[in-house]
Amino acid sequence: MDEVFKALADASRRSLLDRLHAKNGQSLNELCEGLEMTRQAVTKHLVILEEANLVTTIRHRREKLHYLNPVPIHQIGERWIRKFERGKLAALSELKRQLEKRDE
């Protein structure tokens, strides 16, 4: 999970993820188009994103294509969002208990 947060803690890498979110399955050339980053910088960022499993690559017709892999982000959500929901449920139970008590 550390790798995921480290990978996300960089605006250039987030913009690469945004580009893949807008259009999945891009080659390095496509990803570099219109960016102010050098090809070397893009490659370096993609390696970090791949190591965090946020980007996955496959070979398709002799091209290496990059895909956004949202599974680790989903796992982060699962880990904490549920805790907040539990809090809400506890608060609602307490509210119900308090309101119903008045009628006793």
Binding site: N24, G25, N53, I58, H60, R61, Y67, N69, P70, V71
Partner: peptide, 11 residues
Amino acid sequence: SKPQFVYVTYI
């Protein structure tokens, strides 16, 4: 054609 989604998870 090229795949539209590729998801990877390590279990």
